[in-house]
């Protein structure tokens, strides 16, 4: 937190001039009102979910909404542990998320760079093909992917769970956009210095898109962490399922204990929230130290 703040205030000091100082206070007031009210509206369903996770099922199901449950039912969180192999599933979630995030960063950054800044035959066609996979309902892929994973003998394995999610058209598009926004000069200079494309990519260009890589990381973490259908289909052992899938099994078909589900989903969300809070500093700071001055 502190470094982010100091970077920003340094920027503020730099741009502060007598002419604008008098206007700054009211403008920030507007920003605070807009962001405060907007932020509350955005967060409201989430906050209500927190309250529900501490209520009884009857309170959640009450026709007239219960905004405050009175006695807070903290045991709802403990109950989640009782019903799930929470730690093994957490382990699976972390493992698959790390693998996919690293893989997407590597693959999407490489491909995104090539699509943005290299010249080769069929570039637009290949880019179009990659993007085209976003254009059909995602469930179209389920059975084919299942049978590929099955033929590789990867059912009920980590490789099976992660495989399709290693490749992202969205991430490629994101990184292509990022690389397209960079100036040519640095690249040209490096090329004149005799650097090969790999060296240009790793030493010159990669560092310039760090904030976009952070965005890619955030979205991949979220996708991987919350993904439901695929892990449920390729695994048949509770111990091998990621947390989101395990939590989904908690909703009985008849008796749904909503507070438990709310508590469970909040517990599953918490690591992602923490990851975001950590990563957002990189998004913010990324460029400041990237040499793009």
């Amino acid at each position: 937190m502190s470094s982010a703040v100091s970077t920003r205030s340094a920027a503020a000091v730099r741009t502060r001039t007598p002419a604008t100082r008098s206007r700054r206070r009211p403008r920030h007031a507007v920003a605070h009102v807009v962001l405060g009210v907007g932020g509350f509206l955005m967060a409201f369903p989430f906050l209500w979910q927190i309250i529900m996770s501490l209520s009884t099922n009857s309170q959640v199901r009450s026709v007239v909404p219960t905004f405050w449950p009175g006695t807070l039912q903290w045991h709802n969180y403990v109950d989640v542990f009782a019903q799930l192999p929470f730690l093994p599933q957490l382990g699976v979630s972390v493992t698959i998320t790390v693998i996919r995030t690293v893989a997407q960063i590597v693959l999407c950054t490489l491909a995104g760079y090539a699509f943005a800044r290299m010249r080769f035959r069929g570039r637009n066609l290949l880019l179009g093909l990659v993007l085209s996979i976003l254009l059909v309902p995602s469930q179209v892929y389920l059975l084919s992917q299942y049978q590929i994973v099955q033929s590789l003998g990867w059912l009920n394995t980590i490789p099976g769970i992660v495989a399709p999610g290693l490749f992202s058209a969205f991430g490629t598009f994101l990184m292509r956009t990022a690389f397209m926004n960079l100036p040519n000069e640095l690249e040209e200079a490096a090329r004149i210095d005799g650097a090969n494309p790999w060296q240009i990519f790793t030493r010159v260009m990669m560092p310039l898109v760090r904030s976009n890589i952070s965005v890619l990381a955030i979205t991949t973490v979220l996708f991987s962490w919350n993904e439901l259908l695929w892990p449920l289909v390729v695994t048949t052992y509770a111990n091998l399922q990621p947390l989101a899938a395990g939590l989904a099994t908690l909703s009985g078909s008849v008796t749904v204990d909503y507070p438990i589900i709310m508590a469970a989903s909040l517990m599953a969300t918490a690591p992602v929230l923490i990851a975001f809070i950590l990563l957002q500093r990189r998004v913010i700071d990324g460029i400041a130290s990237s040499g793009l001055k």
Partner: peptide
């Protein structure tokens, strides 16, 4: 193998 009803028949 418990699969929530939502996805049981898909699986």
């Amino acid at each position: 193998d418990v699969t929530p009803y939502d996805t049981y028949f898909t699986k």
